[in-house]
Design a protein around this nucleic acid. Structure first.
Length: 362
DNA sequence: AAGACGGGGAT
DNA sequence: ATCCCAGTCTT
């Protein structure tokens, strides 16, 4: 784009954003703490999904200091169902660092933002530009799509070469003094009109600048990348009841998949195994307890990004302990059904709690 | 450079 | 069923 075209493009896009932007809670005051939390929640997560989580979080933890001082279980409960739970744990780690090293205020320096856990190139730029109006570029999935279409860039946008071109454009096009609104306008355009499928070019504020529209390549740009097919996994899961009618739940390791969340004890299955037998054995090894597998409860299918799991859930009864080890040593504890809501569970296990609650009512 | 990391919305 | 989403971190 020539400087004259760029200027007109900026003006038309900003005018559109001023008129048509969605009213979002983190856009009310551009308070740095709110911008930070929203940006972390919005990583790989759509706005509509984030909204109720954001409101609950800000109500429960209205300041960075409150985040630093609360328990990790509280953090994970607020994040329950949102996914990518490392984000939640990293927010707390960062909050503690901010309180210790930055006087409780989010740093404005780009390098210091980047040094905080959970904040990478995109989020550091987003906080710098949206909260502090610094002229820092950002490139997310929306902006990749918008810029590739504007420029009719047909190569794989994930390649190192294309990434460089995209980031360069995102930086070069920022209008002086207006990074806050310009960066958001590019994303807003991608989120609301310049969508992956069925983009609404008739409503686009900048169609005359769009080379893909002119070349009729909108549907092919940006180039799509193939993902390998999801692998299948089979799991056996035990809902174990003790004499008092309490249920056994276990806390997952702090790191890794759904780290720190609670779950019903379960084991992965090989093909062609006796499910009930394997479950009994697996629970004995994991928890040092003997159980009886009484009856099937439900079969739950759940899809993750890279694999699909079928959960074969069984109602079981605790018989006796196999050793002197305590439940705490296994990061497990007995909890009445009505208290399960205090713990954070992966979505698939939340489905089980739903089923148990319904059975209890019946 | 590639894989792990969740869950839901849209088609 | 498949793709995608206001990405980051590890290997």
């Amino acid at each position: 784009m020539t400087p004259t075209e760029l200027s007109l493009f900026q003006i038309q896009l900003l005018e559109w954003f001023t008129q048509q932007q969605r009213p979002l809670p983190w856009r009310q005051h551009y308070e740095p703490y709110a911008v930070w939390i929203s940006e972390i929640m919005l990583q790989q997560t759509q706005v509509a999904t984030v909204l109720p989580y954001f409101d609950r979080w800000m109500e429960m933890l209205p300041s960075i200091q409150a985040v630093a001082e609360t328990s990790e279980d509280t953090i994970l409960k607020l994040w329950e169902g949102l996914g990518y739970y490392t984000r939640a744990r990293n927010i707390q780690k960062a909050a503690i660092m901010i309180c210790e090293k930055h006087g409780g205020q989010i740093p404005q320096d780009f390098s210091e933002l980047l040094a905080l856990p959970g904040i990478g190139r995109y989020t550091a730029g987003a906080i710098a530009s949206i909260a502090f109006n610094q002229e820092r570029p950002i490139v997310d999935g929306n902006i990749v799509r918008v810029l590739c279409r504007l420029m009719d860039w047909r190569d794989n946008p994930r390649s190192a070469e294309m990434q460089k071109k995209i980031w360069n454009a995102a930086e070069a096009w920022i209008p002086e003094g207006n990074a806050r609104f310009f960066n958001q306008a590019l994303m807003e355009l991608g989120a609301t009109l310049c969508s992956t499928q069925a983009p609404l070019c008739l409503l686009c504020p900048v169609p005359s600048f769009c080379k893909a529209l002119k070349a009729n390549t909108i549907d092919a740009v940006p180039a799509k990348t193939k993902r390998p097919p999801a692998k299948q996994r089979i799991t056996a899961l035990a809902v174990i009841q003790n004499e008092e009618g309490e249920l056994l739940i276990a806390k997952r390791p702090a790191e890794g998949l759904m780290g720190g969340l609670w779950e019903f004890p379960n084991i992965n299955l090989d093909k062609d195994t006796d499910i009930e037998q394997a479950l009994k054995q697996g629970i004995r090894q994991q928890q040092d307890i003997l159980i009886t597998v009484d009856q099937p409860l439900s079969i739950i299918k759940h899809a993750y990004t890279s694999f699909k799991v079928t959960l074969h859930c069984f109602l079981c009864t605790y018989q006796r302990s196999e050793s002197d080890s305590t439940r705490e040593e296994h990061s497990a504890q007995w909890v009445p059904l009505e208290n399960l809501k205090q713990f954070s569970f992966p979505a698939a296990h939340g489905k089980i709690i739903q089923i148990l609650s319904q059975e209890r009512m019946a």
